[in-house]
Design a protein around this nucleic acid. Structure first.
Lengths: 205, 205
DNA sequence: AAAATTCCTTATCTTTTGTTAACGTTTTGA
DNA sequence: TCAAAACGTTAACAAAAGATAAGGAATTTT
């Protein structure tokens, strides 16, 4: 993966997106932006692989990725991320241990990147440290809430209910992602999802 | 739930446990400790209920709790926490929205508590703010990793494999928690877990 | 543009899981 | 201490999901 300096328009998009978590002053953003690089993934190119330590957190400018595991030689898709979202093998990135999953571009994808070392630099930079800790806290808390909801859905809902939820809440996923990936995501086989879809055709909510 | 000032021995245990995340100086800890109270739950007493905004994060000194949802009038157990761990309806606590689950003591349980307001006070306290942000970040990141692993297990493993993992990794859960709660936790019915257990008796790993 | 691959659906058969109910044991609570 | 409730297992049947394979449509690749 080749990294380059990011262009100003991209940085602006990034800054705007991060306002969900914290607002950087001009001065802070100048410092922050120095630690950001940019990269491009061709369709099917990998952002992360099993066994490798995740070196970067990415911000998807355009495009999308899927997370997947390999089990018994089969790919099993666990998640998707789209433009405007962060992407990383978080556990690997945070713990500096080899990751257990792959992350692959679903379409041509442009990313902004912050490497682990750059992030540490910022966390240690006197002028930035406090805000970066806060940024990290709010980001982690945000994803914690997402994960909590996801786990609940596995315990309290049937695959069919999870699919109906997906239809109502995450239209984007359905439109941009092949069905058999969605099946994995729901924890079922593609054949089983096809049957659910057929059932719903005749008893639509 | 009645709150009282915590006793020094309990605070020491708490401080020790938090060193997994951050180390507080004497001065910082003095300030921190002022915001901690203590509470006791009888067996089956609730720490959190659906529809209520979680007001506290708890640290379990002794005892254990289970998280559960109610769906179609049925209790569905999602998780357990034991002594030395934090407990809260995190999403509700963090977002200030009504929670969707219950938290109930599995046995007589003593807790240390930090209320949302006290936590905000600390996050706003000049002398404590930086370390509290850092504490929050590392805590959220820690639980994020736990959740990530849990979600992976739902997607890549069968209930039987999840049960075998549980046997090898979380002996404590198996010993202290009724089987039908564990079945929910694995995403299956108690009857199905009973069958898995029988199967494993005749083909032990 | 043609060939190859991927994707979704459908069918059949097998396996697993859910549902309900019964039974004996253990735990709980009055 | 005694009655009631909660637990775990088992059985029988129904429902759902997995495995495999085949066919056609769509997409990709060359």
């Amino acid at each position: 993966m080749i990294k380059s300096p990011p262009d100003p328009a991209a940085l602006l998009v990034f800054r705007k997106a991060l306002e969900k978590f914290v607002t950087f002053s001009e001065e802070e953003w100048m410092l922050f932006a120095q630690h950001v690089s940019t990269s491009f993934l061709k369709k099917k190119e990998h952002f992360a692989c099993e066994g490798e330590i995740a070196n970067d957190i990415g911000f998807i400018l355009t495009g999308s990725v899927r997370y997947y595991h390999i089990k018994d030689g089969e790919e099993i898709t666990g998640y998707f991320s789209f433009d405007g979202e962060l992407v990383s093998s978080y556990k690997s990135f945070l713990t500096r241990q080899p990751g257990t999953s792959y992350i692959q571009a679903l379409e041509p994808t442009t990313l902004l990147l912050i490497s682990y070392d750059h992030l540490q630099d910022m966390l240690n930079h006197p002028q930035l440290a406090y805000k970066m800790e806060r940024f990290g806290r709010l980001t982690a808390e945000y994803y914690l809430c997402c994960y909590e909801e996801r786990i609940s859905s596995f315990i309290t809902q049937t695959p069919e209910e999870r699919y109906q939820d997906l239809i109502s809440k995450e239209q984007e996923i359905l439109q941009r992602v092949p069905q058999h990936y969605i099946a994995n995501f729901l924890g079922i086989t593609p054949v089983s999802l096809s049957r659910i879809r057929k059932r719903l055709l005749f008893q639509p909510s």
